[in-house]
């Protein structure tokens, strides 16, 4: 195995400039790079990669997970991170590594033009190495993407649970999106905290933005409502769409809470309970006739 490595290594060493130039040309063609800025950036990365690849190949480690390959892996990780954050697709990212095959195989062909058996063997070794490096690139790309998704989920959780003070002593909790346990926990905590700070006695939970209500979502709603009740605040459920009303009945769910079709109705009820009324300043034309 060490012999094969040495072949690739000496090839890369001897034809370093040529290989780099051809590789960049291949990348430019395959990835259709038009931006000179990006071209320069890729050239820099490619140079770094080749340098590190030479060092990795010296170590003769067959497995790219070994410590000797650490610098090469780092280059690929940097690449994947940049690409993932800039919104490139996985193939656009992996093409960086896979496009090295063409110039490298061409070099091998020139080197072993007379020895078909040797050529096939070396090509196989080089191909295997590049495939592994390519797969590693895609893996780290996916990992970065996953991190981005997790972070966004977290941000979404914090963004999507506002508690609004509609009136003195009346809170509204407009829920958008599906209610899972993690969100219920955050919703509950922020609602209870606001009940403490504002001293509200009525909370309107609006589920207009909740796409479906199944037994689990209902369970979470009931929990939130009971917790608010323990803190001395009564809940009114609003924004129940006709389909959801049907679903609730079909599932046989018992929410045990006052519910209103719209937030406006809920607010009217809340104001009545708080002994407040809203009156028109002047009789409008419609009521006079």
């Amino acid at each position: 195995m060490s012999e094969h490595r040495h072949v690739i290594l000496s090839l890369i060493d001897r034809h370093h400039q040529q290989l780099l130039a051809e590789w960049l040309a291949c990348q430019k063609r395959d990835a259709r790079i038009a931006d000179p800025q990006r071209e320069k950036e890729i050239a820099g990365l490619a140079g770094r990669f080749l340098d590190q690849l030479r060092r990795g190949a010296i170590a003769q480690a067959d497995d790219i997970q070994m410590a000797e390959w650490q610098p090469v892996r780092e280059v690929l990780e940097d690449l994947s991170r940049d690409r993932a954050i800039q919104g490139f697709s996985p193939s656009e990212t992996a093409i960086f590594v896979f496009s090295l095959k063409e110039p490298l195989f061409a070099l091998l062909r020139r080197e072993f033009a007379i020895d078909a058996d040797r050529l096939a063997r070396e090509t196989w070794t080089a191909s295997r190495l590049i495939d592994r490096l390519g797969l590693y690139t895609i893996e780290s790309y996916a990992r970065v993407r996953e991190e981005v998704i997790t972070r966004q989920q977290q941000e979404l959780l914090e963004l999507s649970t506002p508690v609004v003070e509609l009136w003195d002593g009346i809170l509204a909790l407009p829920l958008i999106g599906t209610l899972d346990s993690a969100r219920t926990q955050i919703v509950m905590e922020s609602l209870l905290q606001r009940i403490v700070t504002s001293g509200a006695e009525i909370a309107i939970i609006d589920i207009t933005g909740v796409p479906t209500v199944d037994t689990l979502v209902a369970q979470h709603l009931i929990k939130t409502i009971s917790a608010a009740r323990l803190m001395g605040a009564d809940c009114i459920l609003s924004g129940i769409r006709p389909q959801i009303a049907q679903t609730i009945v079909h599932l046989g769910l018992e929410l045990n809470v006052v519910s209103k079709a719209t937030m406006a109705d809920a607010l009217a009820l809340a104001l009545r309970r708080a002994n407040k009324t809203i009156i028109d300043r002047e009789p409008s034309a419609a009521t006079r006739t």
């Binding site: 917790a227 323990l230 803190m231 001395g232 605040a233």
Partner: peptide
Amino acid sequence: VAITLVELGLGLTGVRTALN
């Protein structure tokens, strides 16, 4: 405490509650 009670399934349904 309210969250814990609810998670335990104790809604204290027979008792009235107030904030303070």
